[in-house]
Design a protein around this nucleic acid. Structure first.
Lengths: 140, 140
DNA sequence: CTTTGCACTTGCAAAATGAAAGTAAAATTA
DNA sequence: TAATTTTACTTTCATTTTGCAAGTGCAAAG
């Protein structure tokens, strides 16, 4: 449990010092879905983040203990990014974002179906997914 | 259910076109907590948003159907901002932000206690709060 | 009828963004 | 082994956004 830097008390304020940015949240979402990504994977993502912005966001998320940089097992030229426990615990927020978007916007069928499944037993899904992701941390 | 504008499918992307900004989320949070606010109320908030930024964010949130501008019952000089149903449905996201911040940052005792209460029966809290807020819409 | 309060708008310097090109090390290919 | 490609960034620079301060215009209060 770190101490908050700037703002003293309001929960959402201190979260948003780190996460109040589209790109940060998209990086987190990608990592929740894929467990790990390389720099190039992020660049290839649908949302087309600029490379300099990606670099600063990755650095910022790492400094704030949300992601960590690891050696790629297959190549020294590659870097693996993974969520830390703190980052994994953002899953409920991302899930709720998904439900909300599903209700008010048009999203693709695959995502819609996935969300419908999750909705059937949200708490269990979140619990087991977080567990799995945190297990993945110990090994890799 | 509106159609998404820019991005076609990914749930979080389309949410973040509207919400991927610290100030937008803080405005939503304020309105969830206080039901309604004037322009001045937002300015007085702890986070110290600049007045021009506040104006553009309010306009943007209104254009996206998340808040609505109403006449103040007591004065023509004042304006009341309230969440729409779409805006009220953001409550789960804000609540999850709160839990996450509570876990990883230092937040004040009052907020901490409130979150602890909510945690005891999160689903009921969210359901009844959303109900209350939506009732408030019909009247006011 | 002047002053105060309220909801903005405007102007401007500073910072952040985004597109494109560049760099350096590692891996692959010739 | 040399040349090329891949990978993860960094740099540059024009454009956009931010943040601060001051201003505007209408409503209400004194």
């Amino acid at each position: 449990m770190e101490k908050v830097k700037k703002r003293s008390d309001c929960p959402i304020s201190c979260s948003l010092d780190v996460l109040g940015d589209k790109w940060s949240l998209l990086i987190v979402r990608d990592l929740l879905e894929k467990q790990q990504s390389t720099y190039g994977d992020f660049l290839k993502a649908e949302e087309k983040i600029a490379t300099n912005i990606l670099a600063t966001r990755l650095q910022m998320l790492e400094e704030n203990g949300i992601i960590s940089k690891l050696d790629h097992p297959e190549s020294k030229a590659k870097v693996l990014y993974k969520l830390t426990k703190k980052g994994i615990d953002l899953l409920p927020i991302i899930v709720e974002f998904g439900f909300w978007a599903d209700k008010y916007y048009t999203i693709d069928k695959g995502k819609k179906a996935a969300l419908r499944e999750i909705k059937k037993d949200k708490e269990t899904f979140i619990k087991t997914t977080i567990q799995d992701l945190k297990k993945g941390l110990e090994k890799g």
